[in-house]
Design a protein around this nucleic acid. Structure first.
Lengths: 216, 216
DNA sequence: GGATGTGAATTGGTTCACAGCA
DNA sequence: TGCTGTGAACCAATTCACATCC
């Protein structure tokens, strides 16, 4: 049946893409989809999609494809989005508030319970219905709201300190936007998104193209 | 000397991390650094760091390490950050403006020349000194300001249309924040950053931890 | 017939182990 | 001696090819 040990992280990162496409298909009342169609909609190869899904079981029908809504629910369960996940965003600057708005509006599967900041100008305000707490209240709110995921959008110098506080409160999944290398115990999962890195690594390829254009 | 063909993309994505650390070291007047120290500061293994750098040449001194400022300049040149890169941000919503502010303030190596939007409420405004143009002006500004990189922060339904317009103007490096699968010619490089995907794939691991905690 | 599910082959990336040099 | 640079060994991930089943 479903084989091997843990699924590789590369597979896990593709699941939300499948979910996004399946959400669309369900909305458009398309009831069955082949790995070939999913390939066109996701940009991944059909074989890869079948292998990815096969990690968790056999959900398709040979000769037909996958039932969109069924597959969608399977993936929700695999990721863990069938149960509510509570998220805290630490840092209510432009990036933190943008992230909050984006997820409250576009991401029905997670629940942003609060933003945290130290600036008296904004503590007490709301962003898209989400309260901005003072950073002092972090531990209390994590406990009361049962926060499972922390999102760090504070300046790099303060990021490690926030990680330590989150870990102390048993928040072991952290999304970090600060340009810093963070340390945490083995069992804590940190995903780093560094906007500068994304932009800079892209510039490598932009330059390439220009060079090619100039060559010859 | 520097071997093999093209460097793998995984190497390219680590270069900006080295750059960030080297910037810090240079600021702290540390003149020499070993791959072991770089390992601690970046989270990558020392062997990997040496291999990465070896792709582009031999920049270290055996028995000593790397000269921080020299290595920094080498990496700047490899990425292409020694010359100015002009960036346009399409979509001046919360995410677009946050990205603009972030890069204007924190990223000295790139130059955000403009934001673009269709909302009359904000067209004509400035964000951190960067003008917000009407989307109609996109092609003109790209030509005049010699834009090499486009950043897409528009809603998913409009993203493909923007890609087409950028490609038409020979912008062949695109950073896409819209949750959509985009099509472009082979020679155009698109990096996707999907904030929902990052959050959702993290939730997979948050759930794991809870399960483990509950087991036995 | 047509699409899934999967072993086998291949490719790509990382780690190991050590030779080479200041 | 100490740290870089790199071939070899290893491991992970993707692609290929096809048997399997509706």
């Amino acid at each position: 049946m479903s084989p091997k040990g843990d699924p590789p992280i590369s597979v896990i990162k593709r699941l939300p893409v499948y979910l996004r496409v399946l959400d669309n298909l369900v909305k458009r009342d398309i009831e069955v989809v082949s790995s070939k169609t999913l390939s066109k909609e996701t940009g991944f190869t059909a074989e890869q999609i079948r292998k990815d899904l096969a990690f968790f079981g056999a959900f398709g029908t040979r000769g037909t494809g996958y039932t969109t809504n069924y597959l969608r629910e399977i993936i929700l369960r695999i990721i863990g989005l069938d149960k509510q996940t509570n998220v805290a965003i630490i840092g209510a600057g432009h990036l933190g508030t943008a992230f909050a708005r984006y997820n409250v509006r576009e991401n029905p599967y997670t629940n942003v319970v609060g933003l945290f900041d130290v600036s008296p100008d904004i503590v007490g305000d709301e962003v898209e219905g989400v309260p901005i707490y003072h950073l002092n209240e972090l531990e209390d709110v994590i406990k009361h709201e049962r926060v499972q995921v922390g999102v760090i959008t504070v300046p790099a110098v303060h990021a490690q300190e926030i990680v330590n506080r989150l870990v102390e409160e048993n928040v072991n999944a952290i999304l970090n936007f600060a340009p810093a290398t963070l340390n945490a115990p083995e069992n804590v999962r940190i995903h780093n998104v560094d906007l500068t890195i994304e932009l800079q690594s892209l510039i490598y390829f932009a330059r390439d193209q220009i060079d090619e254009g100039e060559t010859d």
